[in-house]
């Protein structure tokens, strides 16, 4: 097995007395796309911010580790972190147009990732723009974000994130704000670049369709914890966690009117701070048993690289 490019171990994030993310862990290998999925508010974005060490002031990492290759980022001073961001560890965002400074040219912003003025690295920036599929890069390089479409802005963001050839790219819902046709193009681009450049990608999404399209592995989060993780093919073929099963059942087929998972799974996700002592899915789970409400199911290995946290999984394939 190749050593992981990124390892997150037992990560806990607190907002004051409230635990938002409760001891989650996963790892991503070079060239692999790992999807982090889950309903709104389950803690995907704060996890990404914690990996980047760019958490909002109010949120603190109270436990766990983030490792880039062998290096533990958790203990690094901010200066060292700055040298890593954009170079070895990059991130792209949900609203590409908002993620670019409206008053600055795109070329100048891409060059920032190389810590060089644009004039010095112009050829390199132009080549990168070509790589992300922007036509006429020599003209685009001096344009401002408002002169580009949303899809092109996301390509620019990808160029910015990858120009320094980082080992890890975190993409926080990179296509949610884009048109469906553009979404597919951007996902293809990410997939292709990840493979070509051996970049480990953490793809945050709440769209199981996106997961099926481009991810190698998936990590299903529910209310600040990991419910189930493993290879996409295995999990889609035979989900074990009741929540995963319901999520998969809610993927819209071509013939369906699109629905959100919330419309399909009855009940509400508990808010952070309202979590009980047991399984956080218990109030919505069709398979809940009495102990589910009182005891937290541990995340256990289930063979074939799978992990699951449930007392009554759909097909019990846990290793004995």
């Amino acid at each position: 097995m190749t050593p992981a490019a990124l390892t997150v171990a037992a990560l806990s994030l607190d907002l004051g007395p409230t635990r938002l993310v409760d001891g989650i862990g996963f790892s991503v290998a070079p060239g692999e796309v790992m999807a982090l999925v889950g309903e709104s508010g389950c803690g995907k974005s704060v996890t990404a911010q914690a990996i980047m060490r760019l958490l909002p002031d109010a949120i603190r990492q109270t436990g766990g580790q983030v490792r880039l290759g062998e290096e533990d980022l958790t203990a690094l001073p901010e200066r060292a972190m700055q040298a890593i961001r954009g170079r070895r560890l990059s991130m792209i965002f949900q609203e590409p147009q908002a993620a670019l400074d409206p008053l600055d040219t795109i070329g100048a912003q891409i060059a920032e990732a190389l810590r060089q003025p644009l004039s010095r690295v112009r050829a390199e920036v132009r080549r990168m723009l070509e790589d992300v599929g922007i036509s006429d890069p020599e003209r685009r390089i001096d344009q401002h974000p408002f002169e580009l479409s949303g899809g092109m802005c996301q390509r620019v963001m990808i160029a910015t994130a990858l120009i320094a050839r980082p080992a890890v790219l975190i993409a926080d819902e990179p296509t949610t704000a884009l048109d469906v046709t553009i979404q597919a193009q951007i996902l293809d681009l990410l997939r292709r670049l990840a493979i070509e450049r051996r970049t480990a990608v953490v793809l945050i999404t709440h769209d199981m369709g996106v997961v099926a399209d481009i991810a190698d592995r998936v990590c299903v989060m529910y209310a600040g914890r990991i419910a189930e993780a493993g290879p996409v093919a295995e999990i889609f073929a035979a989900p074990m966690h009741p929540y995963t099963a319901l999520l998969l059942a809610s993927i819209p087929r071509l013939s369906d009117v699109p629905k959100s998972p919330l419309a399909v799974i009855a009940g509400q996700v508990p808010a952070p701070g309202e979590y009980g002592p047991g399984c956080r899915f218990a109030n919505r789970c069709p398979r809940a048993e009495p102990r589910c409400a009182t005891t937290t199911p541990p995340l256990l290995a289930a063979g074939q690289g799978r992990e699951i946290a449930c007392f009554a999984p759909l097909a019990d394939r846990r290793a004995p």
Binding site: M52, L54, M91, F93, L100, A113
Partner: peptide, 14 residues
């Protein structure tokens, strides 16, 4: 508070 500041920090700016 805007996204472009988060993005600038994510590419390594202090």
């Amino acid at each position: 508070s805007r996204d472009y500041v988060a993005a600038a920090r994510a590419r390594g700016l202090s």
